[in-house]
């Protein structure tokens, strides 16, 4: 990755970015992270009727080091949280997270001490998917929305700059645990 790290930005890189984005989005490899009933719908999405293979992502990798997408499917208990974070840390960059179902996204109806109130307390989430559980079409819709995001991912110096900006925003953002009202 020599050239694009030296150049600030330009028409050459936009084309490279488009090709890279197309390649990245067409071969997502999800890590197996089914935690509850949402995992049943996730399996159904991978099976013949809905067939995730059409999006180039039928192999659910049991090992995180060969995966670049984590579909957190189900409620994350406090005891599972460090394991989830470890699996996320073991995935190589670039990587993405879909928070599937209301329990993973915000704790859902399990507003209690045993369940993490949203997996975004632990890992950065790219797409939140409501539903309890979401039907396979909803998961595919989330995946297509993620594909759009990946298609427009930047590269090289631009990516570093974007990541710095995002980190600054995240550092000054209000902590999730202090949010009030419906954002709790």
């Amino acid at each position: 990755m020599g050239l694009e790290e030296q150049l600030p930005s330009g028409f050459l890189l936009t084309t490279v970015e488009a090709v890279h984005g197309y390649a990245a989005k067409s071969s997502l490899w999800p890590v197996t992270f089914g935690l509850a009933c949402c995992a049943i719908e996730m399996m159904a999405t991978g099976a013949g009727r809905y067939d995730l293979a059409r999006f180039g992502m039928e192999v659910f990798r049991p090992s995180p080091r060969q995966a670049d997408l984590m579909i957190v499917a189900g409620r994350v208990s406090q005891k599972m949280a460090p394991i989830l974070r470890q699996v996320y840390d073991q995935m190589p960059n670039p990587k993405w997270v879909i928070s599937m179902g209301v329990c993973a996204s915000s704790g859902g109806m399990f507003n209690n001490y045993a369940v993490v109130q949203g997996v975004d307390h632990i890992v950065p989430v790219d797409i939140y998917l409501p539903g309890c559980p979401p039907r396979p079409e909803m998961l595919m819709d989330a995946i297509i929305k993620l594909h759009n995001q990946i298609q427009h991912t930047k590269m090289g110096a631009d990516l570093v700059k974007e990541n710095d900006e995002r980190e600054q925003l995240a550092l000054t953002a209000e902590p999730l645990i202090e949010m009030k009202g419906l954002l709790r």
Binding site: D126, I127, Y128, M138
Partner: peptide, 13 residues
């Protein structure tokens, strides 16, 4: 209508 996925918590209120 079921296509509700989005990329932030705020947008899903």
């Amino acid at each position: 209508e079921y296509e509700l996925a989005d990329n932030s918590r705020e947008k899903l209120i």
